[in-house]
Design a binder for these strands. Structure first.
Lengths: 129, 129
DNA sequence: CGGCATCCGATCCGATACTG
DNA sequence: CAGTATCGGATCGGATGCCG
């Protein structure tokens, strides 16, 4: 069935047991929310450890980072690999192959955010932490 | 200041009085959430009346559609125009010029959602309403 | 036709403290 | 180091009814 026919039939979409009414909302179930795309953006290119992500993503709490990573893992966007069994642990997160397919969108979103800031917003630089 | 320099300084970003820590979260403040990008997608190309949107977006409630449209208007993504004063009213929504800049992202998201459904999910067709 | 008002449960998410 | 546990406020969003 081609795209045109799909559009006309307006099927619901089921991904990971979540049912959506259209491709857009299906996508937003996976990458929407306040933090998911931010986390994914930071995983572009490199693997990252938990605390690296925590430091690189200002404003996020441990709890939220942990929960979001777990969801991303459950949705097949992120791999979690444990390298040591005894504390101190070493855990690395990477994008899955599926997660990689998001990279073009994430890059567009970053660009758009920058441009929106330039045209409609402002940048706040802080000398004094 | 060029992009590279901007990245290194990691300024906060303020758009419409909302402060974000990076371009991605700034963007997600504007287009994130369950419904905003769905609504915007339906405004691509055509102006739409309130009830048109309601019919075309299954699963959304009047209240939510109304609230989201108001936010999109406040954020400068959508124009709301009233054409009659006495009931029955005629109200049309269109993308603003700023909203138009989102179209490439929205199209990518639709494509990605379709592809995700094809590879990781399934389509549910309903003969019986 | 195009909403708004109200109520209310579900969910999100921040703060804080604790653990293998 | 990489989380989990618990609490609680804020926000989301569904149901319902009303209105110019």
């Amino acid at each position: 069935m081609d795209r045109k026919e799909l559009f006309e039939k307006k099927p619901k979409i089921k991904i990971n047991n979540k049912i959506s009414f259209c491709p857009t909302s299906a996508a937003m179930e996976l990458i929407g929310g306040k933090w998911k795309s931010v986390i994914l953006t930071h995983l572009i290119g490199d693997k990252k450890r938990y605390n690296e992500l925590r430091k690189e993503i200002p404003g996020i709490t441990e709890r939220t980072l942990s929960l979001q990573l777990k969801q991303l893992e459950a949705d097949g966007m992120v791999n979690r690999r444990v390298f040591t069994k005894k504390p101190p642990l070493k855990v690395e997160y990477t994008l899955t192959e599926f997660g990689q397919t998001l990279v073009p969108i994430l890059n567009l979103i970053v660009d758009w955010g920058l441009q929106a800031a330039e045209t409609k917003g402002e940048f706040l630089f802080e000398e004094t932490k």
